[in-house]
Each structure stands twice: as structure tokens, then as C-alpha cells.
């Protein structure tokens, strides 16, 4: 238990950051029209792809002769990148459609 309390003391600032971020996340989203639910979900999906940084670090720190761990790290970097790139591209495609359709309107 002592150990746990020490951990909290050591990470005080981080815990504050987390709490503030939670409220920020709620605040940022609160007024969203229903047509944007899908793109927003998809965009948020891409943002949590930032997990790939963890994968890069973990693979980069693995001993270069530990092939099994390297293979897991390799896979982690692939799926993490897939999350980021796929997420942003697909959101871009969805939102791009809204945009072209608005252009057509102003032309009409």
C-alpha cells in the first residue's frame, strides 16, 4: 500500500494532467451535430493511434538479438501505424464528401 501511495506522490502532476484532460475531452465534444458522429468517431479513432509511439519506443529498446520480442514489437508498430494512417485517411475521405457537395451548392 505504501508503495501505491508513493506512486501517487511521484506522479502527482500526471494525475492532474489526466483529470484536466478528461474534462477537456468532454468539453470539446459536447455540441456535435449528429451528421458528424461518424467522422468524429473515426477522427478520434485515428488520434488514439498515437499508441504507435509506445510501440516504436518499445521496439527501439528491445535488444537486437531478441527475435521473438522484436517480432511482437514489429507487429505492434504495423498495427499502430495502420490505426493512425487508416484512421486519418478514412476520416479525410468521409469529410471530403461533405466538402465537394457544398462546393456544388454554391455553383448551382
Amino acid at each position: 500500500m505504501q508503495d501505491f501511495f508513493q506512486y501517487i506522490i511521484d506522479n502527482e502532476q500526471t494525475i492532474y494532467l489526466i483529470i484536466l484532460m478528461i474534462f477537456l475531452g468532454i468539453e470539446v465534444i459536447s455540441q456535435v451535430p449528429s451528421i458528424l458522429h461518424t467522422p468524429l468517431m473515426s477522427g478520434a479513432n485515428a488520434i488514439h493511434g498515437v499508441i504507435v509511439i509506445g510501440a516504436i519506443i518499445v521496439t527501439g529498446e528491445t535488444a537486437s538479438d531478441d527475435y521473438f520480442t522484436l517480432a511482437i514489437g514489429f507487429l505492434a508498430v504495423i498495427v499502430g501505424t495502420l490505426n493512425v494512417v487508416g484512421g486519418f485517411v478514412v476520416t479525410d475521405r468521409m469529410l471530403g464528401m461533405f466538402k465537394t457537395e457544398k462546393k456544388n451548392n454554391s455553383n448551382n
Binding site: M21, L24, G25, I26, V28, I29, N45, I53
Partner: peptide, 13 residues
């Protein structure tokens, strides 16, 4: 970066 991105998506999601 991971914390901000993760928590934002966690709470916004």
C-alpha cells in the same frame, strides 16, 4: 503525447 491523445479520446469517446 500519448497521454493527451489517449485521455482525450477516452473521455470524448
Amino acid at each position: 503525447a500519448m497521454m493527451t491523445g489517449g485521455i482525450l479520446v477516452g473521455s470524448a469517446g
